[in-house]
Simulated assay, not measured.
Amino acid sequence: MKLSHVSLLASLLFSASSWALSSDTEQPIHINSNSQNFDMQSNQVTFTGNVTLKQGSIEIFADKIVVIRPQGKEGREVLEAYGKPTRFSQLTDDGKTLKGKANKLRYELENEFLKMTDSAELTQDDSIIKGKVITYNMKTQKLIADGGKDDRVTTILQPSQLNNK
Rank of each mutant, 00 (worst) to 15 (best):
L98E: 04
N111T: 11
E77M: 09
E80I: 14
N50V: 01
D93K: 07
G49E: 02
Q36I: 07
P85A: 08
M40F: 07
G56C: 04
R69M: 03
P28D: 01
K73P: 05
Q27V: 06
K115T: 13
Q27N: 02
K96Q: 13
F38K: 09
G56W: 04
L114C: 14
D125R: 00
T48C: 06
Q55H: 09
P85S: 08
K96L: 08
E74R: 05
S127R: 00
R76P: 10
T123C: 07
L105N: 14
G83K: 01
T48P: 02
Q55G: 09
E112W: 00
G75W: 03
S89R: 03
N103C: 06
V66Q: 10
I58C: 11
V45L: 05
T117G: 05
E108R: 13
K54C: 08
Q27H: 00
L109E: 15
Q44K: 09
K96D: 10
R106M: 15
E77I: 06
F88C: 07
T86Y: 01
F113S: 04
Q36F: 13
P70C: 02
T97Q: 11
F47C: 03
Q90M: 14
G72M: 00
K84I: 07
E26Y: 05
Y107E: 15
G56K: 03
S35W: 08
K104Y: 13
S33M: 00
N34V: 11
K104C: 09
G56N: 10
Y82K: 04
N103M: 01
D24N: 11
K54H: 10
